[in-house]
């Protein structure tokens, strides 16, 4: 019962897609912090939501990657599980929503802090390929007040 049963084949993506998306996300979040313009953060929240809840196939930055970037790169056999990427998008969505509400309702400190957290996570993913939300899932789960688990988005 403790060991994992054999897993069925799972959805996967070209790992360079999420890296590209993380760079775009980082740029957008820097712009949000610099301008404090909440509609931009709300738009980013929407982008996160599509990736997390509808699927990476529909994620805007992933589409951008497929159309603009992927054709210029050598094809790869390398695959990455889609579930962690979607989970991370869900975490990003949470921070973006909190941040946008902070900015929109004149609590700029909340907007700054929430956006900064999202930026840190996006930049770690973009520059280091380190998915903060994924790797620390067990920690988030431990700290989560919504038992028994967070992030059911798959």
């Amino acid at each position: 019962m403790s060991t994992t049963p054999p897993v069925p084949p799972r959805a996967s993506v070209d790992p360079r897609g999420p890296r590209f998306a993380a760079w775009v996300t980082s740029a957008v979040l820097v712009a949000v912090l610099a301008t404090g313009w909440w509609p931009l953060l709300a738009a980013q929240a929407l982008v996160f939501a599509v990736g997390a809840f509808a699927g990476l196939r529909y994620a805007p930055y992933a589409a951008l990657f497929r159309v603009l970037v992927a054709p210029r790169l050598a094809p790869t056999d390398e695959r990455e599980d889609a579930a962690p990427v979607r989970f991370a998008q869900g975490v990003g969505f949470g921070f973006a929503v909190v941040g946008a509400l902070g900015y929109a309702f004149d609590v700029p400190a909340l907007g700054l802090v929430a956006t900064a957290f999202a930026l840190a996570a996006a930049f770690l993913n973009a520059a280091f390929g380190f998915c903060l939300g994924c790797e620390t899932y067990v920690l988030l789960n431990r700290l989560s007040i919504i038992k028994p688990k967070v992030g059911t988005a798959r």
């Binding site: 949000v32 912090l33 700054l112 840190a120 930049f123 380190f130």
Partner: peptide, 23 residues
């Protein structure tokens, strides 16, 4: 202006954290 400093500070901290994690 504060926002821009926060952005730069965040990127700096994340870069340091990223290097530590990689180490």
């Amino acid at each position: 202006m504060t926002g821009l400093y926060v952005a730069l500070g965040t990127l700096l901290v994340a870069a340091v954290v990223g290097r530590l994690v990689r180490l």
